[in-house]
Amino acid sequence: MPFRYLPDVALADVAFEAESDSIDGLFETCALAVTDVMVDPKTLKGGTAKNFSLEAQDLDRLLYDFLTELIISKDVDSLLFREYSVKVDPGGRSLTAQARGDAIDRERHSLRNDVKAVTMHLFGVSQVGPRWKATVVLDI
């Protein structure tokens, strides 16, 4: 799995570490981790698409805003996503993305935790050699 939970960090919340060989892949992996906290992704079909277009002051903030958009989509549009295709612009200050998922159905989806927010605690994106890494703590 390209992300792993950090069970010893922020006990009441959920922390994870993600990595990828590209910045686009890192964003997609982090988004999948957020999905995994909220629902068993295998129970989603992916019949509904939503597009995102975001700008931010830096790469950290861009990831924070992107993950926050997924939480807003869950609350406002009742959408959970299982697939992500992200394109981060070379400057790392804007992105376009498409997410595919389903409207929430309590009968069909194996739901987990209602994520409240992305926290800034330990939050960060870094490049270690050829790999991109991110640490995220979600408020539950």
Binding site: A12, D75, V76, S78, N113, D114, I140
Partner: peptide, 18 residues
């Protein structure tokens, strides 16, 4: 605007977690 939308849609709900 986002906070307003989230508030309207979740008015009167219990939530999850603890």
């Amino acid at each position: 605007r986002q906070a307003m939308s989230r508030g309207v849609s979740q008015f009167g709900t219990l939530g999850s977690g603890n």
